[in-house]
């Protein structure tokens, strides 16, 4: 009988994928783990408890990151949905769509450097509002492009149908468009949340170190060579996207398929 290597290779691949994540959790629970010690001298919840005590400011960074990403994702998803409708039905749709790609011509850091003067003049430099506005400038065009496929002739016909059946604009949105676009709205929210959550270049320039999101904090710990806190902040960084991914999988993707 031929020996079947497939399950073993598969298990090895799964272990290799999972290893960095498991190791990161273990590292966040350890301290004073020096070469050539096989095990850390301390293994427990001390690092995590410090977060609750806010000694390192990680909890504060986590809350700031959640607030910024939720604001950016909500505003860009909703405004992207409404404005992409106007763009898609506009006679000069092609020119306007081309303009939406403009923020992606430049690297975010260069883009932020170009805009920094205006942010400084408007008093948006070094505060969370400025970071939200800056990140919005990246996520909003993304949402516009994302929803452009939704606004097609069929959707226009459906809107017209609701109008001839006696519906007003508000009823068209709440009784027809939002329910039909529910899956796309959730996916766009998830994507823009992730873009904002992992954003570093724009945030570091517009936030000038005063707005310390988790991504900024991870880089600081890496620079300080404090890999225990680095691992801990990475855990915090990954936790919300994992929750969102689960919710999306559970409630959106399964229903879309």
């Amino acid at each position: 009988m031929k020996f079947n290597w497939k399950p073993y290779i598969l298990t090895l691949i799964v272990l290799l994928i999972l290893f960095p994540f498991v190791y990161m959790v273990l590292l966040s629970l350890a301290s004073e783990w020096r070469f050539p010690d096989l095990l850390p001298s301390y293994f427990g919840l001390r690092n995590w408890l410090k977060i609750i005590g806010s000694e390192t400011g990680l909890l504060h960074s986590f809350l700031i990151s959640v607030s910024i990403s939720l604001s950016v994702a909500t505003v860009s998803t909703l405004s992207g949905f409404f404005i992409s409708r106007s763009v898609s039905y506009h006679p000069k749709k092609r020119v306007l769509t081309l303009l939406t790609y403009f923020p992606y011509i430049l690297a975010p850091v260069v883009f932020a450097a170009c805009l920094s003067y205006f942010f400084l003049r408007m008093g948006l430099f070094g505060n969370a509002t400025g970071v939200i506005v800056a990140q919005f400038m990246i996520t909003f065009p993304y949402a516009l492009i994302f929803f452009s496929s939704f606004w097609n002739q069929r959707t226009k016909n459906l809107e017209d149908l609701v109008a001839t059946l006696g519906g007003n604009q508000l009823q068209t949105f709440f009784k027809m468009l939002f329910p039909i676009a529910k899956g796309m709205l959730l996916i766009c929210f998830f994507q823009t949340f992730l873009i904002s959550w992992f954003e570093y270049g724009l945030t570091s320039i517009i936030g000038v170190g005063k707005v310390q999101t988790l991504t900024i904090k991870v880089f600081l710990f890496i620079k300080e060579a404090n890999f225990y806190y680095g691992a801990l902040s990475c855990c915090l960084l990954i936790f919300p996207p994992v929750v969102l991914l689960y919710l999306n999988k559970r409630y959106v993707f399964n229903k879309l398929v």
Partner: peptide
């Protein structure tokens, strides 16, 4: 406006 006309338009689809 269409919503006040009481005229319903049915498409091929």
């Amino acid at each position: 406006s269409p919503k006040h006309r009481k005229i319903v338009y049915l498409y091929q689809e």
